[in-house]
C-alpha cells in the first residue's frame, strides 16, 4: 500500500465557530492507481491534496505513507519523504519565472544534491520525452499555457516520484491542451506512476480508475 488516511480531520476556528475543511476522511491508495477527486469549489479537494502531499498538516487522524506514520514525523523527515516520492502539478503551473525551462526542470534535482552530469542526463531525457528540447532555453513567459504545464509535469516527474498530485492540472488550459495533458497522465499511469488529481471536469475525472467525491470536506461517494 502506498498511503493510507484514517479519520483525518482538519479545521479552522473563526469567530468562535469551528469550520471543518476535512471531516473524517478515510482513504487507501495502492501503488499504480489513478484517482480523481471531484467536488464543487470549496469542498476540500485542494486541502486533501495538500494533506496527502504533506504541504499542509491536519488536526486529527492518522496518515501512513509507505508505512511511515506521517502524523508523527518531524518536519525534516517529512520533507525528505515528499521530496523523494511525491511530485506536484499545479493549476497555475507555478514555474519559477526567472529560470529557463531547462533550469525549472533541473531544480528538484538540485535539492536532491545530485551530481551535475547525472542531472544533465536526466533533464535531457525529460526534454526529449516531452518534445521540448527546442524550448529548453526559453523562460516560462515565452511559452503557451499548455507548454508551461508540460514543463510543470516534466519538473514533477524528474525526480522519479511514486506519486503525482495534480490540482486541477488543466484548469487554465483549452480543451485541446487538456486532452493532451490527460493523455500524458494516462500514459504515465500505465508506466506505473500513481496519480491523484483534483478536478471539476467529468471528462478529466473519467481518466481516473477510481473517483472520489467530496462535499463540504467529507467523502460523499455513497450518494453517487
Amino acid at each position: 500500500m502506498l498511503l493510507q488516511l484514517e479519520g483525518i480531520f482538519k479545521w479552522v476556528n473563526t469567530g468562535g465557530r469551528r469550520i471543518f475543511l476535512l471531516k473524517d476522511i478515510d482513504l487507501e491508495v495502492e501503488e499504480g492507481e489513478f484517482i480523481s477527486i471531484m467536488g464543487p469549489s470549496g469542498s476540500g479537494k485542494s486541502t486533501l491534496l495538500n494533506v496527502i502531499g504533506m504541504l499542509d498538516g491536519f488536526n486529527e487522524g492518522e496518515y501512513n505513507f509507505l508505512n511511515e506514520p506521517v502524523h508523527q514525523l518531524k518536519e525534516k523527515h517529512r520533507a525528505n519523504l515528499y521530496k523523494e516520492y511525491i511530485g506536484f502539478v499545479f493549476q497555475a503551473y507555478h514555474l519559477i519565472d526567472d529560470l529557463t525551462v531547462y533550469e525549472n526542470i533541473e531544480t528538484p534535482l538540485l535539492y536532491k544534491k545530485m551530481k551535475s552530469s547525472e542531472r544533465k542526463a536526466l533533464v535531457a531525457d525529460m526534454l526529449d520525452r516531452f518534445n521540448i528540447v527546442g524550448k529548453k532555453d526559453l523562460f516560462p513567459s515565452q511559452l503557451s499555457g499548455g507548454q508551461q504545464q508540460l514543463v510543470g509535469i516534466a519538473r514533477a516527474l524528474i525526480s522519479k516520484p511514486k506519486l503525482i498530485l495534480a490540482d486541477e492540472p488543466t484548469g487554465n488550459l483549452n480543451s485541446k491542451q487538456s486532452l493532451e495533458i490527460m493523455e500524458l497522465f494516462k500514459q504515465l499511469n500505465e508506466e506505473g506512476v500513481t496519480i491523484i488529481q483534483a478536478t471539476h471536469s467529468e471528462t478529466n475525472a473519467s481518466y481516473g480508475k477510481r473517483i472520489i467525491h467530496l462535499l463540504d470536506g467529507a467523502r460523499d461517494d455513497y450518494n453517487k
Binding site: K76, A79, Y82, T107, A156
Partner: peptide
C-alpha cells in the same frame, strides 16, 4: 513569495 512556495513544494527545505 511565489518562488519560495514553489521551491518548497518541489523539495527545497528551509536551509537550502
Amino acid at each position: 513569495a511565489m518562488e519560495v512556495g514553489i521551491r518548497k513544494a518541489i523539495g527545497s527545505n528551509r536551509k537550502q
